[in-house]
Amino acid sequence: MKGFAEAFWAESLKARKSKILWITFLVFSFIAIMMGLLVFVANNPELVGDSVVLSAKASMIGNADWPGYFELLYQIIAMIGLIGFGFVISWVFGREYVDHTLKDLLALPIPRSVIVLSKFIVITIWAVLLSLTLFILAVVTGLAVNIPGWSVETALHAFYIFTGTALLTLVLCTPIAFLASYGRGYLLPMGFIILIIIITQFIVVGIPGIAPYIPWAIPALFCGAAGPAGPFIGTASYIILFITSIAGLMITLAWWRFADAR
């Protein structure tokens, strides 16, 4: 692919030099550490004394052991993943409009599609590293606060479910790239993410029968966030998810190729 290495280099430099990169890692690290501390509080309620708020938060965790802790982690990646990855993708695409640098990318000896694809590759690497940070720090914090019930098998199974949930969440972010390009900035994609979170919550809780056919509800169902009696996801769900992801990618490529950049 002509110019891919150069475009990838440029995109990764822009990401590496941005404050946003470090802010996202700080937020994901903070969440991981807070999760571990919350489970620690659930196991040691006397530590918070009369604090109603902290007790209530800690009691949200079902079983304060490693399987329960990992279940909380799945839910976190399904929700925070969408917000975090969505934020990253909104920034990577939206910043070209907000910083008015888009025009410098449109008349180059490199096809525009290569620029778009290199942005997606950088986003993927960024999201994978964020997910790994969340998982590793959550495990380290869990071990540090001595959560009961640890086994390597439980951790490996959890890593499989966690990775699957993170990847399914990530691939569903492609339409957000289009919205950042169409909306020329961050507002439209971030508004969309909030809307999606609200809608999927209503659907998973209110009308769980259709949840397997709503793309953004599928990662939550995959990791079992809807509970053991939650709807089953089959091939049709994965096809819907795949089509949504490809459609997001294609429409973003088409927008960069055909739309007027005013």
Partner: peptide, 21 residues
């Protein structure tokens, strides 16, 4: 002419050099 605000003059030009192959 806008450039990437968090990148230096050299880095902005280096990006253009590479994207111009």
């Amino acid at each position: 002419p806008y450039s990437y605000p968090d990148l230096t003059v050299y880095e902005n030009l280096e990006i253009v050099r590479r994207l111009r192959l």
